[in-house]
Design a binder for these strands. Structure first.
Lengths: 233, 233
DNA sequence: CATTGTGAACTTATTCACAGCC
DNA sequence: GGCTGTGAATAAGTTCACAATG
């Protein structure tokens, strides 16, 4: 993840006991939670019925205590002496993340990256349903890609409302991203996954996550350049 | 970024004064550094000659102190009473991140996402040079996409060595990602940007960053689901 | 006089270590 | 014996606040 949310606000101490999220959960915890979920899918595919904080942690590079503490934010999901039943924990984490139901999503920007997103199977398998895409390039309008209809951007508001869309993917050039985001917000989406290399300015009450591919690669080069500096120079 | 590196090791106190990185810099700092860089590009485009920790921070949702502390890990780049000269700070951060030079990169997996990566202009503009792509699907082999030649995976080792490739992009199905990563490492790449939804197991000395699009969206749904839970339920 | 760089204070996150349980 | 959940201890990260500076 590229964390992309401004500083969190103050805690609001609420406590209930099963898969109901307290207000202030650190972004890092949520990030790891989705990692646990992914690993659980793999474990299940490999035929495991149960796992443990130690096993999960080892596979992801965390300590066992970290895994348990993360889960403890949300409730009691384990069985002392036994571990976690994979299917139970999957269900619990999906409930926490909100992916225990379908989410209706639109894409804005049907360029190279946009087309790839339309065909991305990982979205579908996690319950994300791409119901429409938008662009301003006339030849594309009215066509379908991967079964998703491409509309003109001017229809965004209408369709987002009609189709009860809750999330938007922004894959337009940097210079257009903020206006597109504003339109999505005006149309009522609650969250945005932004692929444009800009920091979006959104009202509180709308969530965002930014994915900037060049920035991700820069995180890699930093580490590699560092090793080179340490050894050679 | 989706942070994807195991727990860092112990500090090794070294100190020198200009854009040379000490060993243990938190990943979060490097992540913000690339955010500062991106924002500086925008500021320069808008005609700004100088900026300040306050301005930079405000635009990104951080405090001014945070910005200054982050930069202080690497040296003294500001001018008291004045701020930071944008071009100077860009140069300094690029040097820190290692993007003050060209990096030779290969892509493995020419599917939907792979093709989008081949056409992604953001890589080129930051100095990343895609020199080759690999796949196992016969019809693609021998063709070019966006000017990048597609080879059979069996030629990976040879070409990575010949072309002095340092970074690999992995855009293959989850089930193939680990073997592909192993091949890249064997061929000598120093870092991998992994788009497959698995945690790669790499030897120390090879860096990785993982980008899992479904996981990124899950970070958004968590926040949205939470607001819904708080208000309605 | 606006702004940096930085110790000191504070806050948040991680790990330890162990009681309780299967 | 192996494992969870958790308070206490430790470590890491962030913000404060101010002396130093062009």
């Amino acid at each position: 993840m590229s964390p992309d949310q401004p500083n969190p606000s103050k805690p609001e101490p609420s406590r209930s006991d099963h898969a109901v999220a307290p207000s202030a959960v650190p972004a890092a915890v949520v990030n790891r939670l989705s990692l646990y979920l992914r690993e659980l899918h793999h474990l299940i595919s490999d035929g495991n019925e149960t796992t443990s904080s130690g096993q999960l942690g080892r596979r992801l590079g965390f300590t066992d205590a970290q895994v348990r503490k993360d889960l403890a934010h949300f409730g009691h999901f384990g069985h002392p002496g036994v571990g976690y039943r994979c299917d139970e924990l999957v269900a619990a984490i999906r409930k926490i993340l909100g992916t225990d139901r379908e989410w209706r999503v639109v894409l804005v920007g049907v360029g190279n990256l946009g087309r790839a997103l339309l065909g991305y199977r990982g979205f579908r398998s996690q319950g994300f349903r791409l119901v429409a895409a938008f662009d301003t390039d006339s030849p594309k309008i009215g066509t379908e890609i991967e079964g998703v209809p491409i509309h003109h951007l001017s229809q965004l508001n209408e369709i987002v409302t009609q189709e009860k869309v809750e999330l938007g993917l922004v894959a337009v050039p940097a210079s257009d991203a903020q206006v597109v985001a504003d339109q999505l917000v005006a149309a009522g989406v609650g969250g945005i996954l932004n692929f444009a290399p800009v920091t979006l300015n959104l009202p509180v009450g709308v969530s965002k996550v930014g994915v900037d591919l060049a920035r991700e690669l820069e995180q890699v080069t930093f580490a590699v350049a560092n090793r080179l500096r340490e050894s050679e120079g």
